[in-house]
Design a protein around this nucleic acid. Structure first.
Length: 212
DNA sequence: GCAAAGATTTGCT
DNA sequence: GCAAATCTTTGCC
């Protein structure tokens, strides 16, 4: 036997408690996008880079101003997708974490493509970047997996969802993890800009930027 | 109701 | 290395 049976659900309890633990659990997990049309390709990749946004007091988090029409799913149950549009052009995928109404989410910043490379490249507008860079960066993940704001609210722990998570294969060793400050949040100020809440699989060629 | 800024990427200088 | 592209969400008048 080499791989897991298809459709194994990602355990929701791994996302329900501490967001940094959830972020570590998501590294190495698989992001799966079922074919969006008959005869289309299934897209799948290994999550290799994430960032955590934790709590009302995190000045870098969209939840910092309390519940709004955009961020309200962050206040809901874990395992739900939160997709937002940044800079008017890029869709970024988050996995809601923590239970009990504490707002938190993990941003999926990079995925190492494994399946459906052609569909990913098409989603990237036919970009000629090498395969390992097709989903390297939060906006690239959204484009490569065909995700937009209509995916907000989707249950990523349900194998029947068009977009969902799967655990890493059981025979795969746990990844070595590197940590560093989050990207693009200078506006938040200290201590939030320095919090090492960006986590990545050490050495992966698909990580968007080198860790400090 | 209007103005400002943003969890980015790409291409040109 | 830097600036443009592009539009939603939020904050303030």
């Amino acid at each position: 036997m080499t791989g897991p049976p298809p459709g194994r659900p990602f355990p929701r309890d791994l996302l329900a408690a501490d967001s940094l633990a959830a972020a570590r659990a998501l590294l190495g997990a698989r992001l799966v996008r079922e074919a969006d049309e008959p005869g289309g390709q299934r897209r799948r990749g290994r999550i290799v880079e994430v960032e955590a946004y934790i709590g009302l007091d995190d000045r870098a988090s969209h939840a910092r101003m309390g519940p709004t029409p955009r961020n309200r799913v962050m206040f809901g149950p874990p395992g739900i997708a939160y997709v937002y549009l940044v800079y008017g052009m890029h869709h970024c995928l988050n996995v809601v974490t923590e239970a009990g109404g504490r707002p938190a989410a993990v941003l999926v910043r990079a995925v190492a493509p494994e399946e459906g490379l052609d569909a990913m490249r098409a989603g990237r507008g036919g970009s000629t970047v090498p395969p390992h860079r097709l989903a390297s960066g939060p906006g690239c993940v959204g484009a490569a997996f065909g995700v937009d704001r209509s995916f907000t609210g989707m249950d990523l722990c349900d194998p029947a969802s068009p977009l969902h998570l799967e655990p890493a294969p059981p025979d795969e060793p746990a990844p070595q993890i590197a940590a560093g400050p989050r990207i693009g949040i200078a506006y938040a100020g200290e201590p939030w800009t320095s919090r090492p809440w960006r986590l990545a699989v050490a050495g992966s060629a698909s990580v968007s930027r080198r860790m400090a």
